[in-house]
Design a protein around this nucleic acid. Structure first.
Lengths: 334, 334
DNA sequence: CTGTTAGCGCGTTCAG
DNA sequence: CTGAACGCGCTAACAG
C-alpha cells in the first residue's frame, strides 16, 4: 500500500541509504544516481514518512505554538510573524488553540511535547505555576511570546505593558483630562490586566491626580464588556471625560456605548487603549491607541527559539519590544 | 536523557509490553501490576513518545486542518467547531495557516500528509486542479470545509452560497430597492465570488430588474476594498440605493464610506451582505446579513471526517447547511 | 560516492 | 495476565 524508501531503492537499483541521501539533499551523491532516484520517486509516488524520520533522527523540524484564543485577532497577527521566521528557518509550525482555558493550555503543551516538537512557543495567556510545571518537564526550549512569567525564568518576548498604559493615559492627561476612567482586564492577569492597570495608576499619580476606585471597572477584554462598563460610567453623576481601555476591543465597545447614548467621541468623551488591532482603523471615529508590534513579537520570539533549538548561546533571552502611540481620531482636548 | 517505556519496565519490574498495555488502557493487566507501573511512570516522569507510537501503530490520532487565512475571523469560528468535535472523538488537531497563497496551501497539505495525519480538513479557499492532484495522492480521507470542488469529487460541507446571496438581494428588493449595487469577490472564486454573484443576478432577474455592469465591482473581501468600491458607487450620477456586499467586511467598509460622505445607513443607502462575523454586531448601524453557520460547518465536517477515518460508510458525503437572514439595522425601505 | 548495519521508542502478535 | 521478539520507515555511523 504505502511506498517506502526501500521500494524506491529497489526500483532505482541503489541502496536505501542512497535514497535517503538524495531525499535529504546530501551532496555526496553522483548526479546520475541522484537522477535515477528522483525518477524512481516520481514513478512510485513516494512520499517521505515524517514520523519515521522523526523517530530515527530525533528531530521533527516542527515547532508547536499554543495560541490561547484563535478568534482573537491579536494572536493571528503574532502568528503571522512566527510563521514567516519559521519558514525562513525551515521549520513547520503547528498551531494549537487552547480556547482561553487553562487546563486546555496545559493539555496542549503536553500533547505538543509528546509529539516531539523541537521547540515550543507559548503565546499570550497568563503563566501560572502549573504552566511552569509543564514547561519544566520539557527537554526542548520554550519561549513565551507576548507574555512573561512572574519570576522571569523563561525566555520571553513582550512589550512593557505598564509603560504602554502609562503613555496612553499620559496622552489623555496631556490633553487636559483629569477625570479618566479605566476599563481594565482582570488584575489576575499580569500582562494585559495588572500591568496596564499599574501604568494607569502611575500616570495619574505622577500628574498629581487622584485615582478613584469608582473610575476603574473590570472587563473581560471583549467588546461587550467594554460596552457594558461604559454604560456604567455614563450613568455616573460625575462621569469621566476620558476613558482608557486595556484593549482595543473594549475601547470600541465603549465608543459605541457612548454613541448609542447620543454623545460623541471625542467631542464629549475621549477614548484610548492599547493594542492596535486591525479593527482600530475600521471604526468611526478611528481609534487612537498604543500599538504593540504584534508581528515583531512573533518574529522575534521565533528567531529566539531557533537560536535556542540550535544551542547557540543567546545573550538576551528576555526581550522587551517598544510600543508606539498611534494618534487617530478618538482623543480630543477636554 | 529521555526516559523510555523500557526504563519504566525495568523500574516497575515488568516487561515493556506490560507498560505499553497500561499506557494504552488495555484491560488485561492485573490492578496491582497496573499500579506498580503507574508509580514507576510517575517516579521517572515518563512521557510517551507520540512519534514512536505513530510509527508502530500507523496512526497518529491527529487530523490536519489547513486554514487559508488565520487572520480571517470566519475561519476561526469554523475552527472552533472542528476542535470541539475533534476533542470529542479524541483527535488532536493541528492547524496550518496558508496565508491565502495557493502554493502554500499545496505545500501545507503535503507536509501534513508527510506527518501522517489520520485525516485532513481543507478549509475555505478555492479548490484548483493542483489541489485535486495533491488530494489524490492522499491515502487518508479529506473533507472540504466551507468550500467545494467544482466536480464535487470530494466530501464537503458548505452552505449554498448562491441561495444565500439570492436571499440577501431579495430582501433588498422586497424593501422596494431596484438600484442595487454589488461589491463582489473575484469571480474566479467559485464559492464567495462567483456563486454569490450568480445569486445577485438571479434575484434581480427574477424580479424583472436589469443587471447593469456599472453596478457590480470586484473587491478582495477586505474592509478597505469595500470602502474603495463604495466610494466609486457614491460618485456615480445615478447611484444605487442599496448595496449587496459579498462579505461582511466589505459591507462594513461600504458603510463607513457612506458615513464619511455625510450620508446615513440605512436612511440614505441600505447595506446587506453575507457571513455574519462577530464584527457585524460591532458596528453602527448593526449590520443586516445572511448568516452562515460557521461553527456547524466546522463541526459537521469534522464529524464527517471521523466517520471516514473510521471507514464507516456515509450516505451523504456532500452536505449543504442552511443559512439564515439576520435582520439588524442596515437595511430600510427605499 | 555508495552499501551495510544498527537502532530510534513503541505496538503487537504469539507463546506461555 | 505477562513476556519475548519482531518490525514500523527512516537516519546515521561505519566501512569500503
Amino acid at each position: 500500500m504505502t511506498v517506502t524508501i526501500y521500494d524506491v531503492a529497489r526500483e532505482a537499483g541503489v541502496s536505501m541509504a542512497t535514497v535517503s541521501r538524495v531525499v535529504n539533499n546530501n551532496p555526496n551523491v553522483k548526479p546520475q544516481t541522484r537522477k535515477k532516484v528522483f525518477e524512481a520517486i516520481e514513478r512510485l509516488g513516494y512520499r517521505p514518512n515524517a514520523v519515521a524520520r522523526g523517530l530515527a533522527s530525533k528531530k521533527t523540524t516542527t515547532v508547536g505554538v499554543v495560541i490561547p484564543d484563535i478568534s482573537n485577532s491579536i494572536f493571528s497577527e503574532v502568528a503571522r510573524g512566527i510563521e514567516d521566521i519559521a519558514n525562513m528557518y525551515h521549520y513547520n509550525i503547528i498551531l494549537c488553540n487552547a480556547d482561553k482555558r487553562k487546563e486546555k493550555e496545559i493539555r496542549v503543551i503536553n500533547t505538543l511535547l509528546e509529539k516531539q516538537v523541537d521547540g515550543l512557543l507559548f503565546m499570550g495567556g497568563t503563566v501560572t505555576e502549573e504552566h511552569v510545571q509543564a514547561f519544566r518537564t520539557s527537554t526542548v526550549p520554550i519561549v513565551l511570546c507576548g507574555t512573561r512569567d512572574d519570576k522571569d525564568q523563561f525566555p520571553s518576548v513582550d512589550i512593557d505593558h505598564e509603560a504602554a498604559a502609562f503613555d496612553a493615559v499620559n496622552l489623555l492627561i496631556g490633553q487636559g483630562h483629569s477625570k479618566i476612567g479605566m476599563i481594565s482586564g482582570t488584575l489576575q492577569d499580569p500582562a494585559n490586566g495588572y500591568s496596564r492597570y499599574q501604568g494607569y495608576k502611575k500616570a495619574l499619580e505622577q500628574a498629581g491626580l487622584s485615582v478613584s476606585e469608582d473610575l476603574v471597572r473590570i472587563g473581560n477584554y471583549r467588546y461587550e464588556s467594554g460596552y457594558d462598563v461604559m454604560k456604567y460610567f455614563l450613568q455616573l453623576s460625575d462621569r469621566p471625560t476620558a476613558i482608557f481601555a486595556a484593549t482595543d476591543e473594549m475601547a470600541i465597545g465603549a465608543i459605541h456605548a457612548i454613541q448609542d447614548e447620543g454623545l460623541r467621541v471625542p467631542e464629549d468623551i475621549s477614548v484610548i487603549s492599547v493594542d492596535n488591532i486591525r479593527m482600530a482603523s475600521m471604526v468611526r471615529p478611528l481609534l487612537t491607541t498604543v500599538a504593540q508590534p504584534m508581528y515583531d513579537i512573533g518574529a522575534v520570539s521565533m528567531r529566539l527559539l531557533t537560536k535556542l533549538m540550535n544551542k547557540e548561546n543567546v545573550e538576551m533571552s528576555k526581550v522587551l519590544l517598544s510600543h508606539e502611540i498611534i494618534q487617530r481620531k478618538s482623543v480630543a482636548h477636554v
